[in-house]
Computed example of a mutant assay.
Amino acid sequence: MAQLAGKNWVNGLKPGLRVVISAGASGIGRAISDMLIQHGAKVHICDVSDDFIADFKQAHPGHGATKADVSKEKDVETFFADAKASLGGLDALINNAGIAGPTGGVDEISIEDWRRCIDIDLTGQFLCARLAVPMLKAAGGGAMVNMSSAAGRHGYAFRTPYAAAKFGIIGFTQSLAKELGPSNIRVNAILPGIVEGPRIEGVIGARAEQLGISYSEMEKEYLQKVSLRRMVSPHDVAAMVLFLLSPLGENISGQSLGVDGNVETL
């Protein structure tokens, strides 16, 4: 343990930190769940997949899970009721749930697909936050991490519902940081870039098909827009969450933090 200016700086989480994670059974969410549990957190997650939830429960039998779609108010209410019962309180919320949304020109995207993307990616974060905040206040403060995207900084042609939602998360985050700061609640957004895994493979494939080029050509074009010329992993994103929830991040709030290898444009 090092000391700086008379203060103890601890690299790790408060023992038994109580954390709720939406879509915490697969992808980035699962990486976050695994890492926080490894560092001593008590976690309750939700997901929409029975298979992913079963796998999570098998790996982490001492932690809670609820099947829930964050775009549905009743599901979110059940999720938080279950979390309160299993955790006994709350120290942190990770608003992670999201979908890629449709690929297409604005005149080609259906209203149904637009609404579905906004409902999950943006409204879902509101529905979780509104129930988490009273619990965080009751605990004397805590942290909220909202998952945005590089698309929330640069915009994203042919992915307008997704980009609109991710820009909205930035405004949501900065507003909540101001609103909740006096209650000792820190609120930050993480902006992943091109994260390796099935979701980006689907996105690249859809865009390649739209342009009539090969997947490898499209992937190369994506990586040319990243300064480090590589994708990031879900574990890179999880490491940023760990930092923000640890004492090392106790004075970081209202920030939009890229974990993206420096995406220059989209």
Rank of each mutant, 00 (worst) to 15 (best):
M1C: 06
A2G: 07
G6F: 02
K7R: 14
K7P: 00
N8C: 03
V10Q: 13
V19Q: 04
G24M: 09
G24T: 12
S26I: 12
S33L: 09
I37G: 10
Q38N: 10
H39V: 10
G40M: 08
A41P: 03
I53Q: 08
A54L: 11
D55T: 14
D55N: 13
H60S: 11
H60I: 12
H60C: 11
A65G: 12
T66I: 11
D69E: 14
E77L: 12
A83V: 08
S86T: 15
L87W: 09
G89C: 08
L90N: 02
G98L: 07
A100D: 11
P102N: 04
T103A: 11
G104E: 01
D107F: 11
I111M: 13
W114D: 03
C117I: 10
C117G: 05
L122V: 12
G124S: 11
L127Y: 02
C128K: 06
R130T: 10
L131K: 11
A138K: 12
G140R: 07
G140Q: 05
G141V: 03
G142E: 02
V145Y: 04
N146W: 04
M147F: 12
A151E: 02
A151F: 07
A151H: 04
G152R: 01
Y156I: 07
A157H: 07
P161M: 11
A163F: 06
A164W: 04
I170R: 12
G171F: 01
Q174P: 00
Q174H: 00
S175N: 03
S175H: 03
P182H: 08
R186L: 03
N188V: 06
N188Y: 05
I194N: 11
I194V: 15
R199D: 08
E201D: 15
G202I: 08
I204D: 10
R207Q: 15
R207L: 15
E209A: 15
S214D: 02
E217T: 13
E221G: 14
K225R: 15
V226G: 01
S227Y: 10
R229D: 01
S233G: 02
P234A: 05
H235W: 12
A238V: 13
A238D: 06
A238P: 06
A238F: 10
M240H: 02
V241N: 02
L244W: 00
L245T: 08
E250F: 03
S253N: 01
S253G: 00
V259P: 02
G261M: 02
N262A: 13
T265E: 11
L266Y: 10
